[in-house]
Design a binder for these strands. Structure first.
Lengths: 189, 189
DNA sequence: AGCCGATCACTACGGGCGTAGTAAATCAAC
DNA sequence: GTTGATTTACTACGCCCGTAGTGATCGGCT
């Protein structure tokens, strides 16, 4: 059972991902969390404090998600990696759409307010090293570089698909080719 | 000399790219355009109308920018393309940073509000076909696919660089490798 | 010159926002 | 079981927002 603050922050992420930055207010968070008015104010005095806490919560959830994924799927080839990534992208665009939108909304926010960058950068670095290790494990000769390229590609793809969605069946071939091309040194197959 | 409405919309894009969606209000636009209070209201009655007009203006400016670029640089090889792209990315992250941030803010907005998608999608499609033709001209055997992959990659790269900037000198090698790998059929050199 | 339509500058107002401050409730410790 | 401190629920206030409405100003047409 998440704590009260976590419930509020999860509600805030949902508001952010379904109604945008403009709608992210104390009152909207209270309502989304089905809590009495003023609850969000008690924990996060100012709006800036709320946004900072949302970033922290988001990072924590992201980390937990990767670790869960890491436990389930462990691709052993480029095609396996592509399949896993396709699954991730499909989930990000479908059931988790709000979370994905919130993610990019936070990126834009961080581009505007440098004090939000640190936690996001730490999280990104963690993901990078973790994914690098996985890439190395399946044969990549330059895992850091290939990992960075792949992450850039996937985020660009996601952003575009969010804004003007294409047919979902087109995702797999696109991602498969990108993986093979951007990570040419992993064991293909 | 841009018309009065264009001046207002350019100011709106600047507000969006430097202060975010939340700050995009009629009054803020008036101030940024150094026009008397109420000017933005006269042209764009509601906030939604303002945002829609900003999208339209943005698309028009983008189109003009490509056409200008097309007149100047005409790469003839993968390395030339990479150099041109690196120049574009540097400009997008430096002098044009606000415009770039505004761009992604609008993407997020379009992810939330489907009625904004059409103009952005049209613009993206135009860019795609134009860039595809250029890719084909320098030898690409599958220009549409390679173009899509490249655009996805560049937007992801830009978004990441905006949120947690890295050293600018790292851009060129990253982009060069990505171009070579994602567009393997263009004449290298 | 004189009118007329459109554009512009400015004001007015209701609503919702962020924020601060206060009562109530919960819990720990003794 | 009472006390005291922390957490929770709620209220109050001032500010700024989006929006509507009203004169003033300008240009084209006859």
């Amino acid at each position: 059972m998440p704590s009260r603050q976590e419930q509020l922050l999860d509600a805030a992420i949902d508001v952010l991902g379904t109604q945008g930055t403009r709608a992210l207010t104390h009152r909207a968070v209270d309502a989304a969390a089905s809590m009495p008015a003023g609850s969000a104010t008690n924990y996060f005095k100012t709006r800036d404090a709320l946004v900072s806490a949302v970033v922290a919560r988001f990072v924590a959830r992201d980390r937990a998600a990767w670790q869960a994924i890491a436990g389930f799927v462990q691709p052993t080839s480029a095609d396996g990696l592509a399949a896993a990534l396709t699954g991730y992208v499909r989930r990000a665009l479908g059931p988790e759409r709000a979370v994905t939108v919130a993610r990019y909304a936070l990126f834009v926010e961080a581009a505007l307010r440098p004090e939000l960058r640190a936690p996001l950068a730490v999280s990104a670095q963690e993901l990078r090293t973790w994914a690098s290790d996985r890439l190395r494990a399946i044969g990549s000769a330059d895992p850091d570089r290939e990992c960075a390229a792949l992450l850039d590609y996937v985020d660009g793809l996601l952003l575009h698909q969010l804004s003007f969605p294409g047919p979902p069946e087109a995702l797999e071939p696109m991602i498969t080719r990108a993986v093979h091309e951007l990570c040419p040194t992993v064991t293909s197959g």
